[in-house]
Amino acid sequence: MPELVEIRLHGRGGQGAWTATNLLAMAALREGKYSQSFPFFGPERGGAPILAFARISDKPIDVHCMVYNPDIVAVLDPTLLGPKVVEGIKDETVMVVNTQDPPSKVREVLGTSRGKLWTVNATRLALEVIGRPITNTAMLGAILKATNVVSLDSLLAVTRERFGGEMGEKNASVIRKAYEEAVPE
């Protein structure tokens, strides 16, 4: 990963994409790193496609614009898969996708041969563990498997802090499961 890691999450309003980037940023902070987390700000409507961004670095972060060439892209909702989610990616970009399809089919839908693709069935995991198709934390587990951008321990700690009690444990559990199940292309 580069000195400044730029992350872009694609989700739908209500799926907790911004919460997810906040958790990543807080986990980084816990490790003594600098971080940023912000959504692509639009009218907040449940179900509408939204973006959330995070930046993580060992140095203070001066840049204050959107992320155009992400090092990590994650897609929280399979219905969002398409060329739009791979805009601006580089050869080294890690793409983590919530899908039940094989990587070859995902590639076809994305329309790119660039980037390193990881897949996980986050919707199934979220339904099993949390009981709702909210995939943000499952996708974080998969991102960490693919990149180690922060440690699993840091993420679990901030997740328990953020949700607390039973929801904290369930989210921690779904993070672990997705971490185990995410597979590279």
Binding site: Y34, Q36, S37, F38, I61, H64
Partner: peptide, 12 residues
């Protein structure tokens, strides 16, 4: 402070 760019951006 800049709306959203700062107001809604979590930073250290």
């Amino acid at each position: 402070l800049d709306g959203f760019v700062l107001s809604h951006t979590l930073e250290s």
